[in-house]
Amino acid sequence: MAHVPPSPEPFDTDSAALLALRACDDIDSLHDVRLAYTCIEKLVDPQQLVSDSEDIYPIRTELSALMRLVNEELQRRIETTEATMQSLRLAVDKVNAAPS
């Protein structure tokens, strides 16, 4: 017997607008990743016989994308570590406050 998907929930235009906005942000992020990759590729494997310097060396936009990606990832990891440390502090305080 074929699986019948459940009836779709009523369409929420606010949710659709938020999803569309998120999709646009995700696409912009993918463009940054592509630029950063291009930058790394040029740094790692420069082409020797190309006459145009833009094809050999990373351009400012590519370097900016690489730095932005590195900074965003560093920020995400810092925030994750801070959240872990806060949870650890709360757990230690809870153990210390418990009657012996």
Rank of each mutant, 00 (worst) to 15 (best):
L30V: 01
L69E: 08
L63Y: 04
S64A: 13
V4P: 02
C39K: 03
S15L: 10
A98F: 11
M85R: 11
P58C: 10
A65L: 05
L74A: 12
R76M: 07
E41C: 04
A83R: 15
D45F: 07
L19A: 12
R22N: 10
L49Q: 05
P6E: 03
E79L: 12
L88W: 03
Q47W: 09
D32Q: 08
S64T: 06
R89T: 04
M85T: 09
P46E: 06
M1K: 00
S7H: 01
D93G: 04
D52Q: 05
V95P: 02
E54D: 15
S7G: 01
L49W: 06
S100T: 03
P46S: 06
M1F: 06
S64G: 08
D28G: 04
H31D: 15
R34D: 14
P5E: 07
S87T: 07
L66I: 01
I59Q: 12
R60G: 00
V50S: 08
S29C: 11
V4W: 11
R89I: 05
E62C: 06
N96G: 00
T80L: 13
V44A: 10
D28P: 00
Y37K: 04
S87D: 06
Q48S: 13
L69M: 12
T13D: 13
E62T: 00
A2Y: 12
D14E: 06
A97L: 06
S53H: 11
L88H: 09
A65Y: 03
R34T: 10
V4D: 11
L90H: 07
D12Q: 12
E54S: 14
D52G: 01
S51Y: 14
I56M: 07
Y37N: 02
R77V: 12
L63Q: 13
Y37I: 00
P10E: 13
R76Q: 09
D55M: 13
V33S: 09
T84E: 15
P46K: 05
E79K: 13
K42F: 01
K94W: 07
E72C: 10
L88R: 07
E73I: 02
I56K: 12
P46N: 08
L19W: 11
K42N: 04
C39F: 13
S64D: 15
T13F: 15
A16I: 01
E73H: 13
T38C: 11
T80S: 10
I27S: 07
V50R: 04
A65G: 03
R34V: 12
L21V: 00
D26N: 11
L19F: 08
T81W: 08
P10R: 01
R89V: 04
M1W: 02
I59E: 13
I78F: 12
A20E: 14
E41D: 13
L69K: 10
L21H: 02
D12M: 09
C24P: 00
S15Y: 05
P8V: 07
P5W: 05
S29W: 05
L43Y: 04
M1H: 05
C39R: 09
L30S: 10
C24F: 03
S64Q: 13
C24M: 04
Y37S: 03
V70W: 09
V92T: 05
L66V: 02
M67R: 03
T81P: 01
T81E: 05
L35W: 11
H3V: 12
S100H: 00
